[in-house]
Write a protein that binds this DNA or RNA. Structure first.
Length: 234
DNA sequence: CCGCCGATCCTCT
DNA sequence: GAGGATCGGCGGG
């Protein structure tokens, strides 16, 4: 059982909100450069109202993507059907399907018109462990429940199988299926920065941020170019 | 611990 | 057509 940590700090923006887990982040939080937002997201909490009980994950690893000026960003070549929400108002969810079987989640940053985003890479499950374990049967340790972008969305139920929140969902909402809670920011001296995982372009840009020494941070993998299809031809 | 490999299908050129 | 902001399993040092 263990239903989360008691401590219902006052909170309660105006009216709604289940105060147990604290308030959601305000819109203004996301109106900054993605790298700045990314750093500030460590220690904050993702709240999922998908399924029979809530699941809450405390963020320990994130990556910033700077839209049109960042060759590693999905928005680098301009708006498309998939990435259009990245060009909209900050604080919304950008969810995408990858490798034919996984889902990853981003928080959109900046004002409408710019295309920043922060990939939610990993975190620590702080509530709803039971449900998270059911959704992540291959995880052997607690620390591996959300130790990767696709693992994190799976633990939260933010995928198609669980009818999770789609791109465009407002994470500032106090009633929606996907929310971003204020939590407790991580002290600057505990934040480490390094190159982003698995990206082919701009591989040296240090826009991956994580909590120093935290066991829930995913292991780094460099980009592996696809196998050359042996030149059959002739 | 590290590296390689296959799975699987949507998206953009 | 080709490749991808991944994961998990397997084999070697």
């Amino acid at each position: 059982m263990s239903a989360g940590r008691g401590r219902a700090a006052g909170v309660g923006p105006s009216g709604a909100a289940p105060a147990v887990f604290g308030p959601t982040l305000g819109r203004g939080f996301f109106d900054r450069h993605p790298a700045e937002v990314a750093r500030d997201l460590l220690g904050r909490c993702l709240f999922s109202a998908v399924g029979p009980e809530p699941v809450v994950v405390r963020l320990t690893e994130v990556e910033a993507y700077a839209g049109e000026v960042d060759p590693a960003s999905h928005a680098f070549r301009g708006p498309t059907v998939r990435n259009e929400v990245m060009f909209g108002e900050g604080g919304h969810l950008y969810r995408y399907f990858i490798y034919g079987m996984y889902w990853c989640a981003n928080v959109v940053t900046g004002p409408a018109g710019t295309a920043g985003g922060v990939l939610l890479r990993a975190g620590e499950v702080v509530a709803g462990h039971e449900l998270a374990r059911l959704r992540r049967p291959s995880a052997r340790k607690e620390s591996d429940l959300a130790a990767g972008p696709a693992k994190l969305t799976a633990a939260l139920g933010w995928n198609a199988v669980d009818s999770g929140p789609r791109s465009g969902e407002d994470l500032c909402s106090t009633t929606g299926p996907a929310r971003l809670l204020a939590g407790t920011p991580v002290a600057p001296e505990q934040v480490v920065a390094g190159p982003r995982v698995g990206v082919a372009a701009a591989k040296e840009v240090p826009w991956r941020f994580w909590v120093d020494g935290d066991p829930t941070v995913s292991t780094y993998r460099r980009h592996v170019p696809k196998k050359t299809p042996g030149r059959g031809v002739d």
